[in-house]
């Protein structure tokens, strides 16, 4: 019996900090009752079920799938196809990302207010779409570079620190209004489904290539995917 409920208890424990924080601030700091307690409990119940299912599905579906792709490409031995896959994965998962669509629309609004572009629906839409395309391209490129790094075994810090220097330099030249959006865009590109898949791919690649260590070389793809959008978005803000 305990075995059945164990995952649910784990999920409830994962959620406990949020409940404690919200309860504490609501009751003791703001000194107000919890509105609609019934609804809150239903919500918490659903979150617990959802988290439990997600973790189960992760271990059954996403992890094995990512690893199998990595092994299959390693066996095939064609780096070109692997790069094509890496690019498609990065580009494809980003272009339709809802968080990115929201950020792009916000950025278009800011650009229109700052008079970089016309304040018409059309100009704003095309600006937002261009931005999404730019970010998706940058994530595609990021995953390709990340996969190349795993194959070659380059130390990650030189690439990432180099990228940061790029961010710092771009910050000096980019329009002030775009900087906050650009910095935030790095965080929105990696969705909850992409992260496990890309992580499994990286770790799988590193463990199937001789001389690579899955711990040292397998991680890092997400880091690239969060870095390049900042540079590309600032570049986009400067060009247009």
């Amino acid at each position: 019996m305990y075995q059945v409920f164990r995952p649910f208890i784990d999920s409830l424990r994962d959620l406990l900090p949020i409940i404690v924080v919200i309860g504490f601030f609501q009751l003791f700091v703001l000194q107000q009752p919890i509105p609609d307690l019934g609804n809150l409990l239903v919500g918490v119940f659903m979150v617990v079920i959802g988290l439990t299912l997600f973790i189960r599905g992760l271990e059954m579906g996403l992890f094995p799938l990512g690893e199998n792709m990595a092994y299959a490409f390693a066996r095939k031995g064609s780096a070109l196809w692997l790069f094509a896959f890496a690019f498609a994965l990065g580009f494809g998962t980003t272009i339709a990302e809802p968080a990115l669509i929201a950020v792009a629309a916000k950025a278009a609004e800011i650009a229109a207010n700052a008079a970089f572009i016309d304040k018409s629906e059309e100009a704003m839409d095309s600006y937002a779409f261009g931005l999404r395309l730019t970010v998706a391209l940058s994530v595609g490129v990021a995953i390709v570079v990340g996969v190349m790094r795993i194959i070659r075994g380059w130390p990650i810090q030189y690439l990432i620190i180099g990228g940061y220097l790029g961010v710092v330099v771009m910050t000096m030249f980019a329009p002030k209004e775009i900087i906050g959006i650009a910095y935030d865009s790095g965080g929105v590109t990696t969705s909850t489904i992409t992260v496990p898949l890309v992580t499994a791919l990286g770790v799988g690649l590193a463990s199937s290539i001789k001389g690579r260590n899955p711990m040292t070389d397998g991680f890092g793809l997400i880091a690239f995917a969060s870095l390049t959008p900042m540079i590309f978005v600032m570049g986009y803000g400067m060009l247009i």
């Binding site: 079920i49 959802g50 988290l51 439990t52 299912l53 997600f54 973790i55 189960r56 599905g57 992760l58 271990e59 059954m60 579906g61 996403l62 094995p64 799938l65 909850t192 489904i193």
Partner: peptide
């Protein structure tokens, strides 16, 4: 099945 769990769970 795992994919379905992930979708439902999310």
């Amino acid at each position: 099945v795992g994919f379905t769990y992930v979708l439902l769970g999310l």
